[in-house]
């Protein structure tokens, strides 16, 4: 399917930006922060947003807690932002967290996990797992219900979701009732995913970009086989929580996301995989301008409500 007509002008503007893989880490971070600056749009109001610092495996771990209007306890979403393992912040993904908080009426805990290259694998997922354990143990304080925790994240944050769910299974909890992966990174780049060729350039995130991100993330290429880096390479996917995987037709990561869904289903995990046609890697965050993004958010909200009602 051709590029969605609503996306076309946005994509044209986006392609004028420098490609991340041609930049230094500092430049890439500055560009991502500027592109997603929190103050550009009118904020989405929620009942409260509080910054906190909790103990993490590498020292202080900042988190941001979003609470909806009404009286709790609310279900809990752990949110791991997209990053390419290298960039973005709690601020760049602030709006999305507010939308989840209101749409699903859940407490959202957004995690400022450590980024590469300063903190390589497995610092990021270890932070996400520690934050999830902390939130489950402090659910009362958060006005949240520890029996209804869903992990959610986009892109590299989707990788954090898959890996944190594996860690929670392998390490005895906390119990999770769902994992939501939006356009996730599930595998180290390897031949065999047509989307790496079909969508390797021209739609924002490029194949070269993915190699650049992974290069910063891993200490050496051998780590690519570690399932906590590439969850599709896990030998056993049984016993993981139900999953929703959203993929985009024009995304480099489309096929690995859908492949992970297939593997989960084979392992007996209830899984729903939905591909959105004619849209690119970053489409999900464009609810203000893309109908496809609104549709995806409606699907995600319905799935989350159903998981939280379980």
């Amino acid at each position: 399917m051709p590029v969605d007509p609503q996306l076309r002008p946005i994509l044209e503007e986006m392609l004028k930006l420098p490609r991340f893989e041609t930049l230094s880490v500092e430049q890439a971070r500055a560009l991502a922060t500027q592109y997603n600056a929190a103050g550009k749009l009118a904020p989405v109001p929620v009942a409260s947003v509080v910054n906190r610092v909790i103990p993490g495996p590498g020292g202080d771990l900042p988190i941001r807690i979003y609470t909806p209007e009404g009286s709790g306890p609310f279900p809990l979403m752990m949110y791991f932002h997209g990053s390419g393992f290298v960039m973005c912040t709690l601020d760049t993904h602030d709006r999305g967290c507010r939308n989840y908080c209101n749409a699903v009426r859940c407490v959202v805990v957004s995690v400022d996990y450590r980024l590469a290259p300063e903190h390589k694998f497995p610092a990021g997922p270890e932070d996400c797992y520690a934050a999830t354990k902390w939130a489950a143990a402090h659910a009362d304080e958060l006005d949240a219900d520890a029996a209804h925790i869903v992990l959610a994240g986009d892109s590299a944050g989707g990788n954090m979701v898959a890996v944190t769910a594996l860690m929670a299974r392998d390490r005895g909890g906390p119990p999770l009732c769902g994992q939501l992966m939006i356009v996730p990174v599930t595998d180290y780049p390897k031949p065999g995913y047509p989307s790496y060729v079909e969508n390797g350039q021209g739609y924002g995130l490029t194949a070269a970009g993915m190699r650049w991100y992974w290069g910063h993330y891993l200490n050496d290429e051998a780590e690519a086989d570690n399932p906590y880096a590439s969850p599709v390479r896990a030998r056993d996917l049984r016993g993981l929580p139900p999953a929703l995987i959203i993929t985009a037709e024009l995304d480099v990561l489309r096929d690995e996301g859908e492949y992970y869904g297939k593997l989960l289903a084979q392992a007996g995990v209830p899984v729903q995989v939905t591909r959105y046609a004619g849209v690119h890697h970053g489409f999900f965050g464009m609810q203000a301008v893309l109908d496809k993004s609104k549709q995806a958010m409606a699907e995600v909200s319905a799935w989350l409500k159903q998981r939280f009602a379980s």
Partner: peptide, 15 residues
Amino acid sequence: LQVLTRLLATGQCDF
């Protein structure tokens, strides 16, 4: 109102 809301919500503003 728009500038104030953005600054109070996120500490940031582009307007």
